[in-house]
Amino acid sequence: MLYINCPHCGMRSQNEFSYGGDASVKRPELNKEVSDQEWDNFVYNRKSLRGKHLELWQHISGCRQWIKVERDTATHEIFRTFKADEEVA
């Protein structure tokens, strides 16, 4: 079970969180013309990386905040975590 550092609450076990997928996906702006390809990339296409991955988790049984977690998908090592509005450098 992963041990995730919630930027709001501190170290908490994985069973307090729910997974939210790739954090690098950006929703196209509202009312903007979007090509089929762009939309498919947003809704369906994911890289399914092996290695360092920035992903979303929600601290669903805690502060209910969505957070960003930088995690290695192969080793499960967690490098850094960010608040929803924090820019990831």
Binding site: R27, L56, Q58, W66
Partner: peptide
Amino acid sequence: LSHLEYYLQLVWP
């Protein structure tokens, strides 16, 4: 609820 929180916190803060 999670859906609304997702859009409020991440997409349209």
